[in-house]
Nucleic acid binder design. Sequence first.
DNA 1: TGTTAATATGAACACTTATTCATACATTTG
DNA 2: CAAATGTATGAATAAGTGTTCATATTAACA
Lengths: 103, 103
Amino acid sequence: MTATVEYKINREKLEKAAYILRTVAHPTRLAIVDLLNLNARLSVNEIGEILKVEQSLLSHHLTTMKLKGLLRSEKEGQSVFYSLKEKDIPKLLECIEHCDCNM
Amino acid sequence: MTATVEYKINREKLEKAAYILRTVAHPTRLAIVDLLNLNARLSVNEIGEILKVEQSLLSHHLTTMKLKGLLRSEKEGQSVFYSLKEKDIPKLLECIEHCDCNM
DNA sequence: TGTTAATATGAACACTTATTCATACATTTG
DNA sequence: CAAATGTATGAATAAGTGTTCATATTAACA
């Protein structure tokens, strides 16, 4: 037993963190986060036009992100508006932008 | 064309960010980051003992993380010591810890 | 009410990633 | 030098994700 070594985070927290990171670890989903960080709420249509993502695929992404607690949605007429539920998530983008990893 | 809508990050940056996030979006790899944040350098053996991860699997994880620019390694005798190359990465853990997502 | 527009859903398939196992390689030690 | 220790590698397979396509659902509108 290496007594001097610290180990802070427990299994459960790690699982949760990995779960959230996985949800966000996709170019399109990152773009959605970025977009909803700058624009309080947007319809599926608007997001699709801006990001040039096909309707069904986008819907799948949004559904996933909502399911995992990153987004909320409100229906208005025939449109559905999505917004960021988790305000901390955009910070991930900042961290990443500063960092200087290979590739 | 929705003129009022901003869209900040370009495709290339998104790909890179997603790439880094994917690298880190795994419980064991997060644990490694956390561990190496608290302990400047550790051997494969030490990491394996602390995290209770099988040798080969751990080696695969470490190799991936090194390849993707998150870790560096130095061989000393029969041991190989890994350390964090990317100091910003642990910040991701902080962000995540504050956030309050489902599940 | 029939048509169009906005969004969601589910199944199928393609891709990627994780894990295991056997084995290789290098270094130390008896 | 033979055995033991620490680490890496590669192939095989398992498990998880992304994408597409066809179709469903709901609301608006002529």
